[in-house]
Nucleic acid binder design. Structure first.
Lengths: 235, 235
DNA sequence: GTAAAAGTTATAACCAATTATAAATAATTG
DNA sequence: CAATTATTTATAATTGGTTATAACTTTTAC
């Protein structure tokens, strides 16, 4: 039992070190040697404990995500089904935006990484989050049969992931990201809400318009021929 | 002028070689040396022409995406605004699914890669696609003021990117991906459509339910302790 | 307490992306 | 055509993720 405990401590030390390095440098580009040193371990140990750098960072994301559900408790407590979902959306968006220099690089690294252990855990967690957010609708039996809770929840996950993707790529800034999440969530609810809630939702959407990106949130490429461009930080 | 032409030919040769390698092997894990050989170039040349492996693959994606707009012409010709969007969605989803062994690895590699030239081009292209799809709504002035064409188009991009992400990670199979795109698009339209179109949309959504993932599309992690797991192909 | 088992450490090696450099080559200019 | 210029080529060096190996240490089982 002692052995397992110490192993767990080494694991935590590894994650702590990774978190500290990202927060300090704003990137995930530290070497495994640096990470091992910071965690006071040998180079090989993090590999033994996690398997790869990707797995370490995924585990770190999942650990950080524990806070997201806690932060949403107030939102989940709201009596109005629509407000409950809207606030859950705002809550989780605010969570990422609260530490952009940490979540941007972390998430960016993990997008596109396949991980058979941590990614499914992350996804399941996300689905549960939105199902909980939708609980008000379910309890009051408000959802049309065409949009089951499971399906709607997955759609909310998808729109969140999509918006997160743009945010991570700096195509949305913090304000725009929060607005986009609110907007997308509201729009999806608009489709399934009762008539009497549409008023509320439309007002909600109207409020957001000025925060959403203007013409185009996208940085135009410099139209000067065909530059190789500054080689982006490769993989 | 000759010089520029030959340079362009080398660029195309590079992209052709990359495409061939991905299609043959199903991954983007070929080395730059392999790529250079296949393109009959020296190792340094692709770097001179594009800047990095990421930039090459991004350029390849954008080149392939030229076909997507062509493929959607029939969809864009549909007289009914709602059908026009739904078919545009189905058309682009079908496009990716038409060559999963090519687009999955390509897209997976590019998720999380920042590129100041090709990514913005990709995004702009996507936005234009959806704005074109929404043209029927705009021309008939059907959109509520709370959901401008720009905003709705961006929301459609976001939901597409999100679903694509799940598909790339194999959390959705081909059928589920197409269904999910149709579903998400329909749900977004449901919020803004006229009363008389809701009927049509609800029927559309109802049809899809059986194709969408059941309980959970997510592979559960093997609950056997804390395995390092087979080290995933690292970055 | 002691031997087996598990796991860490130190170290070296391997592979691939990227960069740097000098020599070679081919287009352009006058 | 000759000189200039742009660009590729060949090659080596650098960096970082990952794997392999053997020596060493600590927990565990008897």
């Amino acid at each position: 039992m002692v052995r397992e405990t110490q192993k767990e401590m080494r694991r935590q030390r590894t994650l702590d070190a990774a978190e500290a390095l990202i927060r300090k440098t704003g990137t995930t580009e530290f070497s495994m040697q640096t990470l091992a040193n910071k965690a006071k371990l040998s180079l090989a140990t993090p590999y033994n404990l996690f398997g790869s750098k990707s797995a370490i960072l995924y585990a770190l994301l999942n650990r950080s995500l524990d806070e997201i559900a806690e932060g949403a408790e107030k939102a989940f407590a709201h009596p109005h089904p629509v407000q409950r979902v809207l606030r859950a959306a705002a809550s989780s968006a605010a969570f990422f935006v609260s530490a952009p220099d940490f979540y941007r690089p972390l998430y960016r690294f993990l997008l596109g990484v396949g991980d058979t252990v941590h990614r499914p855990a992350y996804m399941e967690r996300s689905l549960d989050y939105w199902k909980t957010a939708l609980l008000g609708f379910v309890q009051q039996d408000l959802l049309p049969k065409e949009a089951g809770c499971e399906h709607l929840a997955r759609q909310l996950v998808i729109q969140f992931v999509g918006a997160l993707d743009l945010w991570v790529q700096e195509e949305l800034d913090d304000i725009e990201f929060k607005a986009q999440i609110s907007y997308g969530t509201g729009l999806l609810l608009l489709g399934v809400a009762r008539i009497e809630d549409r008023e509320l939702l439309l007002k909600h959407l109207g409020t957001l318009k000025r925060k959403l990106p203007r013409q185009s949130p996208f940085v135009r490429p410099p139209m000067t021929g065909n530059p190789p461009g500054p080689p982006s930080p490769g993989h």
